[in-house]
Design a protein around this nucleic acid. Structure first.
Lengths: 223, 223
DNA sequence: TCAAGAAAATGACTGCCGGTCATTAATTAC
DNA sequence: GTAATTAATGACCGGCAGTCATTTTCTTGA
C-alpha cells in the first residue's frame, strides 16, 4: 500500500510550505520581530499546527537558514567542479562567498544569529545536528583545497590548514556583515568602500599564506 | 543652595547602583534570559523605578556594556602612554585586546549583541550616541597609530589606515568570540588551539602591512 | 513646626507572545 | 457505515517588557 508513502510526501510538502511562510516572515522582520502567529497566518494554518512540525520558533528559523547553507554549498561545489588550480579555486571560493552574500543577503543575515549564545538554548538536538553537519561539510571543502595547495607547494606548509580556513572565513564574514549594515555609513563618514576593504583583506591574507610560486599564480588568477 | 547638586549626585549614584544590579544579572544570564523584574529585585527597587532612569532593557544593557568599553579604553591608553615604537605599540595593542577578553570576558560577550541588527530598534537615541562616541574614540586611537607608522615608513603606505584598523579589529574579534564559545570543541575535535590561531592571524596580518624595516622591528617586538 | 506642593518610588495592570492541549475534523481500516 | 487513528485547531496559560494612577518621601516657606 502506497498510503504511508503518500502521507510521508504530504508531510514533507507541508513542512516545506511552513518553511516558505516562515522564510517570508523572517526575511521581512528578522528573528526577534517575527511572531509565530504571523507565520501561521502566512502559512494559512493554526499556530498549533506549526508545532506539530517544528519544535520551536528557533528550529523553524534554522530550517530556513539551512536552505541558505545548501545554496552556498552548491555554489562552492560548482567552483570546485571546475577543477581550477588550487590557487584559482581559493580565489573563486572567496568570490563565491561574496556572491552568496550579494545574491542571498537574507540568508546571509540569518547566519549571524547562529553565533549568538542564548539562541542555541531554544534549539532542538536534531536540528542542531543537521546544521552542524552541513556546516562541517562546507568547512571541509575549503580545508581540503588548502591541504591540496600545500601538497602542491603553492601554500606555505608551516601553517595549519584548518587554522587558515578559520581565519579566512572569519575575516570575510565579519567584513560582509559590516557591508550589510554599515556600507553607506562608511562611505559617507570615512570615505571607505567596504567592498574594497574586503578585497584588500582577502588579497593580503591569500598572499601571506602562499609560497612564491603560489603568489605568481595568485596575481594571474585575480581577474 | 547645594540641594540640587546633592540631588544630582544622588541621582547619579542611583543610576550606578541600578547598573550594578543589571550587570550582575546580565553577566549571569545574558540579555535574552535576564528580566527587568529580576534586575529590579537585585537592585532592591520596584520595576517602574528602573524606567525612571533607563528607557528600556536594551538601554540598560548598553549602560553596562559601556563600562566594559571604558575599561578597554583605559587599557589602550596605558599602552599608548608608554611611548613604544609604533610597531611595538601595535603589537601591545593586540595583546591588550586579548587581555581585555581574558580579564573581562563578561564585558567582551556583551559587545556581540551590539552587532545584532534588531537589537538597535529598542535603544534610545542618546544611549546609542554615547556608545558610538566611545567606540569612535577607541577606533581613532588605533587609526592614529597606523598613520604614524606610515609616516615613519614602518607600515606600507599604499594601504588605507582606516581599512587596516578595520581588518585587524574584525579579525581579532571574530576569533576571540570563537575562543569564548568553542575553545574546547576545537581542541577536542580538531586538535586546534584557537589562542595559537589568533596569534598566527595577528602575526600574518601585521607582517602583511609592514615594510621591511617594520618587519624587523616586529620580530624584535614579539620577543 | 507643619502644611502644601514637588519629586521619587511603587506595583498592579496591559498587551503581546511562545508554547500547550483538550477538542474537533478528516482520514483510514475493517 | 462505523470505529479507530491521525491531523488540525484555537482558546488558553505563564511570563515578560513597559505603563501609569497612586502612594511615599522630600522640600519649601511661612
Amino acid at each position: 500500500m502506497g498510503i504511508t508513502e503518500r502521507k510521508e510526501r504530504e508531510k514533507e510538502s507541508r513542512k516545506e510550505s511552513i518553511i516558505d511562510a516562515a522564510q517570508k516572515v523572517f526575511f521581512e522582520k528578522g528573528l526577534l520581530l517575527s511572531t509565530m502567529d504571523e507565520i501561521a497566518e502566512t502559512a494559512e494554518l493554526a499556530k498549533g499546527t506549526l508545532y506539530l512540525y517544528y519544535h520551536s520558533k528557533e528550529d523553524l528559523y534554522l530550517a530556513v537558514m539551512m536552505r541558505g547553507l545548501m545554496i552556498m554549498h552548491s555554489m562552492f561545489e560548482e567552483v570546485i567542479a571546475q577543477k581550477f588550480s588550487v590557487v584559482k579555486t581559493m580565489v573563486e571560493l572567496t568570490k563565491s562567498y561574496t556572491a552568496f552574500f550579494e545574491q542571498h543577503r537574507n540568508y546571509f543575515r540569518m547566519l549571524h544569529f547562529f553565533n549568538t549564545p542564548q539562541f542555541h538554548k531554544q534549539v532542538s538536538e536534531e536540528m542542531m545536528q543537521s546544521c552542524d553537519d552541513l556546516n562541517q561539510s562546507l568547512w571541509n571543502m575549503v580545508v581540503e583545497i588548502i591541504k591540496q595547495g600545500m601538497i602542491e607547494k603553492q601554500f606555505r606548509t608551516d601553517l595549519n590548514p584548518i587554522e587558515i580556513s578559520l581565519i579566512m572565513w572569519s575575516n570575510a564574514t565579519t567584513l560582509l556583515m559590516r557591508i550589510d549594515t554599515q556600507h553607506d555609513m562608511f562611505i559617507q563618514k570615512m570615505n571607505i568602500n567596504l567592498n574594497d576593504t574586503l578585497r584588500v583583506s582577502n588579497t593580503l591574507f591569500l598572499e601571506s599564506i602562499m609560497t612564491e610560486p603560489g603568489k605568481k599564480e595568485l596575481y594571474a588568477s585575480l581577474n
